[in-house]
Design a binder for these strands. Structure first.
Lengths: 374, 374
DNA sequence: TCGCTTGCCGAAACCGGTTTCGGGGGAAAT
DNA sequence: ATTTCCCCCGAAACCGGTTTCGGCAAGCGA
């Protein structure tokens, strides 16, 4: 205290921030002691650790992550790169998702840096750059594909990452996901219970693993209900509104059309709405629809869409926590979580008012009389 | 070259990155020379600067922004904090906006770090924290209010910032904005040209400056068309679908109801759609609707919504560029841009099929007969 | 009593940059 | 020919942390 009185006088320049040297001088120890005490090194006496930590809290000392990074190579930053050539630019959940990630990150005093890339190759380059410049310590990968080049690259670079979603070759991967397969199966079960016998599936964009899982869930649901799987009832690669409309149009020209549709994504379902209306039918009566995503606007469709809601904010928060754990060295096998989506029952599903046979007849008749004479 | 041969041998450890020392050794100069050459100091000979820059490019040297930050206090990072208690959680443009910001930032080798706060006070605390820890050098402020506490705080802290939107007291502020006022005025002009004489306005959420500007634009449009401004025709504080529906319901109970509605936001317009349908009317015939935002889903409403589209990506890019310029010392008065929105004509507007008087009579009659007998 | 281990902490190097200071050397001035 | 000035650049300190190394003192057994 007496010896260090002079150095204690040294005023902190930068914005009044208290540095590790200030803290050390205040305590009458060296900054190396402070550093090791705060980082919990065992060669610092328990009592000293407590004293240092208490003083740090009291003086409001927070280490500069940049300064740490230069020595440790770790910047306490999570990376998130969004790929903007993915044509389904509609992401109402991004805001919630980011909020979850940054909230969870900030509780550990980590930050989130987001980058952007034009193409898949550009994403990989961005990974390289961000890692080379130590700007981030790991990545959260949204929208995982069954075969995902990003995973291969990060694995090769030995850079920590976590998936939002699952993938075909899961070795070395940590993830958080929402079970689209059980949701789709539950949707089929619900419709079968209502009396539907012809239930179609409009699948999501090809390549993404969730599309595969949801299609499997649809199949599982049929099997559990004792219904046959008919390839004519499943449509592939419907990413958006237009695709969904086209898919539903095709389904309604079938000899034995479906009386219910389970869509992998809300947007496709909303497209199907339009096709159903064009055919002179009413959603929720002649044709039931259940979808997945919980898009807010779907609540205002006519009729309001019955859909599975996902908690994007919670997903973001879990992913951030998992990634931090992964960076700290946890094994990826221990960092895998899958939760259930929750069904929001609204007005687009109900018992069939027509059998598939009668529905087919009615559609054939209206086609013969022209679309404007139902 | 001969003297430094030994030091040149020193292998780079960290991930094979080339450091300033590597580059200096390679060139046979000191790292101070390299640093000043790359930063364009005038006390380095032109020829040397060229030689250093060439070698840096060739060897792929990129300074570690952390290492720079510790001395300069600048981290080459833009801050963006999203406030998650803003109930209008629907932000389909966030993805585009972020893409624009990060793209522009990365061309200057800057990054974007996003944070999150639960409340307005929390936002201010987050500002303090991010600045104190030198994590960002400035902020982009979305959704500016007429009186915005964030602006006051950042002004007081003397931290650079730019607004997405304008504000009531613009001194010291830089901004990028899209002119909602001219858009609203153009909408009124368009409708007046079609023959509408009673044109209503459904205003946006109270407090946000864009709401005020769009309301002014509506008024300007009326004045230019020689139409009177009637307070009964303007609704306030409609942030979302529900508010928009309520507002339109009220408008349709007026003695002389509007034959056209200009909505400040798409969501409110979509709510109005529902109220119009409930009243047994058809959007685009008895009641025209023009809105603002360019929400993608509005293209699939029935009828497709005529609306003003904003280029969120461009906005993000410009804001990033402006903020970087601001941080580098440009005067805020020189960093103000306002661009026009572009009208997307779809199916929700057209000449009135009924006068306001006749429409009022018809609505009164259907109210008397009950809502189910139009 | 002595030597040896062990616990605890200080001194100093280090990370990768930036910035200050000072001096060598060539050109212009005397 | 000498002085002066200025152009360049090297040497070293510095930013705020982390980590290595070594040494002092207390505790232990012999």
């Amino acid at each position: 205290m007496t010896v260090n009185a002079a150095t204690t006088e040294r005023r902190t320049a930068g914005r009044g921030r208290v540095t590790i040297s200030d803290l050390a001088a205040h305590l009458g120890v060296t900054k190396s002691t402070v550093s090791r005490a705060l980082n919990g090194y065992s060669d610092i006496a328990e009592a000293t650790q407590l004293r240092v930590k208490r003083a740090a809290a009291q003086l409001g000392y927070r280490p500069l992550s940049h300064a740490q990074a230069i020595r440790t190579g770790r910047s306490r930053a999570l990376g998130f790169v969004l790929q903007s050539d993915l044509h389904d630019g509609y992401r109402p959940f991004l805001s919630e998702f980011l909020a979850g990630m940054t909230h969870a990150a900030s509780t550990e005093n980590w930050t989130l840096t987001v980058a952007q890339a034009e193409s898949e190759d550009d994403v990989l380059d961005t990974f390289e750059r961000l890692i080379a410049e130590h700007k981030v310590d790991g990545f959260v990968l949204p929208r995982t594909k069954s075969a995902d080049p990003r995973i291969d690259r990060l694995r090769a670079m030995d850079v920590p990452f976590v998936l939002f979603g699952r993938t075909a070759r899961p070795d070395g991967c940590a993830w958080f996901d929402i079970s689209g397969e059980t949701a789709m199966a539950a949707a089929v079960a619900r419709l079968a219970d209502m009396g539907h016998r012809r239930i179609a599936h409009i699948g999501g964009a090809e390549g993404f693993h969730y599309t595969r899982l949801r299609a499997e869930g649809y199949r599982d649901g049929l099997r559990a209900a004792g219904l046959p799987w008919d390839p004519r009832l499943v449509c592939h690669d419907a990413a958006g509104h237009t695709d969904g409309r086209a898919a539903a149009r095709r389904l309604l020209t079938l000899d034995r059309p479906p009386t219910a549709i389970v869509a992998a994504v809300d947007l496709a379902a909303l497209g199907a709405y339009q096709a159903i209306a064009e055919a002179g039918l009413t959603v929720g009566r002649e044709v039931s629809v259940i979808a997945y995503d919980g898009t807010p606007l779907a609540a205002y469709a006519a009729p309001p869409l019955t859909t599975f809601s996902v908690d994007s904010r919670h997903a973001g928060a879990r992913l951030a926590a998992l990634l931090i754990a992964r960076i700290r060295g946890a094994a990826p096998e221990d960092l895998r979580e899958v939760v259930e989506a929750t069904l929001i029952v609204r007005g687009s599903d109900g018992p069939p008012v027509l059998t598939s046979h009668d529905l087919g007849a009615r559609l054939a008749q209206s086609r013969a009389m022209g679309p404007l004479h139902p």
